[in-house]
Every structure is written in C-alpha cells, then in structure tokens.
Amino acid sequence: MRYVQGGGLRPHEQTARERIRMPAAEGFGRGEKNTVIAKDLRVSRRSVERRRRSWRENGIEGLRCSGPAKAR
C-alpha cells in the first residue's frame, strides 16, 4: 500500500504508535530480548530491532514520533 503525497500517520495514530513504543523502551532498559518484547507487544521482532537501535542511539526521544510527514 502506498501513501498519498505527504502521507503518513495522523496525530491520533502517532499517539497510538507511541503507546507501543514506550513499553518497549522499558523492556530495553530491563535488558529483555527482542523476541520477548515483540511477543508481549504483538509486533514483529524486526520492528523491535529497529526501535532498540533508535533507542540506543537517541534514548527515549528516538522512539517518539517526529510529527506529521511533510510534502516535499
């Protein structure tokens, strides 16, 4: 599925996505494995791997949505 020009998540969708990312950060802090976090949050292991990398590089701010996508 392709997004329309300037597409992306709406603000309420971004908030819903962050509700999944923040518990993942807690799991990262406890040293849980990616597979355990993925199973608990019902997301793919690959998604957890990307979030862990972002969390490691930028901390909790790396998991927050950056705002609506903008058209170029």
Score class of each variant (00 low, 15 high):
Arg10Asn: 11
Arg50Met: 13
Ser44Thr: 15
Arg51His: 08
Asn58Ser: 13
Val48Ser: 04
Gly6Thr: 04
Arg72Met: 10
Glu57Cys: 04
Gly31Tyr: 06
Leu63Ile: 06
Val4Gly: 12
Ser47Glu: 12
Trp55Glu: 01
Ile60Trp: 00
Ser44Val: 09
Arg51Gly: 06
Gly29Trp: 00
Lys33Asp: 12
Ala38Cys: 05
Ala24Tyr: 01
Ala25Cys: 06
Val36Asn: 03
Ser66Gly: 13
Gln14Leu: 14
Glu57Lys: 12
Glu57Tyr: 02
Asn58Ile: 01
Arg21Glu: 00
Arg56His: 09
Glu13His: 04
Arg10Met: 10
Arg45Asn: 15
Glu49Ser: 14
His12Tyr: 10
Ala16Ser: 05
Val43Met: 10
Gly31Trp: 02
Val36Arg: 10
Val43Lys: 09
Gly62Ala: 07
Lys39Glu: 15
Gln5Thr: 04
Lys33Ser: 14
Arg19Asp: 05
Gly7Leu: 06
Lys70Ser: 12
Ser44Leu: 08
Asn58Cys: 08
Arg56Ile: 10
Val43Trp: 05
Ser47Thr: 15
Gly7Met: 04
Lys39Gln: 14
Gly8Gln: 00
Gly8Met: 04
Pro68Asp: 11
Arg19Ile: 00
Arg2Asp: 11
Arg53Ala: 15
Val48Cys: 10
Arg42Met: 15
Ser54Phe: 03
Ile20Cys: 00
Val4Arg: 11
Trp55Ser: 05
Glu18Tyr: 05
Glu32Ile: 01
Thr15Pro: 00
Ser47Leu: 15
Glu61Leu: 14
Leu9Tyr: 05
Arg53Tyr: 06
Arg50Tyr: 14
Gly29Pro: 00
Arg19Val: 05
Pro11Trp: 01
Asn58Thr: 09
Arg64His: 14
Arg64Gly: 02
Pro68Val: 15
Arg2Glu: 13
Val4Ala: 14
Arg2Leu: 13
Gly59Leu: 04
Ile37Val: 14
Ile20Asp: 00
Phe28Glu: 05
Arg21Val: 02
Arg52Gln: 10
Cys65Val: 02
Pro68Phe: 03
Ile60Tyr: 01
Val48Pro: 05
Ile20Trp: 01
Ala16Phe: 07
Val43Gln: 06
Gly67Trp: 01
Lys39Arg: 15
Ala38Met: 07
Glu18Trp: 07
Ser47His: 13
Arg42Cys: 13
Ala16Met: 08
Glu32His: 09
Ser44Asn: 10
Asp40Trp: 03
Trp55Phe: 15
Arg56Asp: 12
Ala24Cys: 04
Ser54Asn: 12
Met22Val: 11
Gly29Cys: 05
Arg53Cys: 08
Ala69Ile: 10
Ile37Leu: 05
Pro11Glu: 08
Gly8Glu: 03
Thr35Ile: 13
Gly59Gln: 01
Gly29Leu: 13
Ala38Ser: 08
Glu57Pro: 02
Gly7Ala: 07
Ser66Trp: 06
Glu49Val: 14
Ala16Asp: 08
Gly27Phe: 03
Arg30His: 09
Ala69Leu: 07
Tyr3Arg: 15
Val48Leu: 08
Ser54Cys: 09
Glu18Arg: 02
Met1Asn: 13
Ser44Ile: 09
Met1Asp: 14
Ile37Gln: 02
Glu13Arg: 01
Val4Asn: 11
Ile20His: 06
Gly7Ile: 07
Glu61Trp: 11
